[in-house]
Design a protein around this nucleic acid. Structure first.
Lengths: 133, 133
DNA sequence: TAAATTCCTATCGATTCGATAGGAATTATA
DNA sequence: TATAATTCCTATCGAATCGATAGGAATTTA
């Protein structure tokens, strides 16, 4: 599965952060977005690590976007949240392991497919997921 | 994972059938293509059921293509072999189950992505996977 | 009748994935 | 200074999926 629950949760959380504008506690966010709190924690940690959002610790802490919603493409959010966006193991986690790689006739096809998917997902931003106005 | 081992094995088997031209026993084919025999059995049964290949039972039986290699797109072979080619559960097996579907802002994006992937994979045929000459 | 094949059902073991538990570290504020 | 609210971290669970295997029934040729 190229896009899993984890990535879709990430989009919901990021979009909600964009709508709120200010720093938000994850407890509120997760409840509002119907994302299991503990799972949400693990997701936002990925997003922080990848530099997509900012965190403030301690009381009154929370998370916030570092850019405007229109400046995040779906491709980069999903890549930050997912283990791999590759369409196949051949271009994903098991990339280096395949002994056939040198002569494999389909490998170039998978690479081109990944590029096509990335291009497609780069054509949308968080703004496209927010209700108009 | 949008394209799994099962689908890639299917492409190898179909391509090999194309190169042989005539009816081939799966024992030979699987050995030649390094596909586990019993797993290959399950794959070709899908391909037969979807009408992509023909089977002959009994001694001297085997499998053969029903069209020329250039007339099979990767999209249709993969769709026949895989459980689902959908990029996400939202447009795949759990499609009907999502209560958010009616208002989900990302659902149209996933549908368009699936269409993009299908278009891409329809741009190649088995012939493209066969060595030149 | 024997041998080679396709067809069918059932199951296994490993891996992944969504989700949870429990607590450490940090910070504002009463 | 104590407390409460938060982010951060590690470890683990249960279910589902997936690649692979086992065992045999049905079919066909010779």
């Amino acid at each position: 599965m190229i896009i899993s629950t984890r990535g879709r949760y990430a989009l919901r959380i990021m979009t909600a952060l964009g709508q709120r504008g200010k720093s938000s506690s994850l407890r509120e966010l997760a409840a509002e977005q119907d994302v299991p709190y503990k799972y949400a924690e693990s997701i936002v940690r990925s997003l922080v690590k990848e530099g997509l959002i900012e965190s403030a610790r301690g009381k009154n802490g929370g998370y916030s976007l570092t850019r405007r919603p229109g400046e995040y493409t779906l491709a980069e959010v999903l890549k930050a949240a997912e283990t791999s966006l590759a369409a196949t193991d051949c271009t994903g986690r098991k990339e280096a392991e395949c002994p056939r790689a040198a002569t494999c006739p389909t490998l170039p096809v998978w690479r081109a497919l990944d590029e096509t998917v990335t291009q497609f997902l780069s054509g949308y931003t968080l703004l496209d997921l927010m209700p108009k106005q």
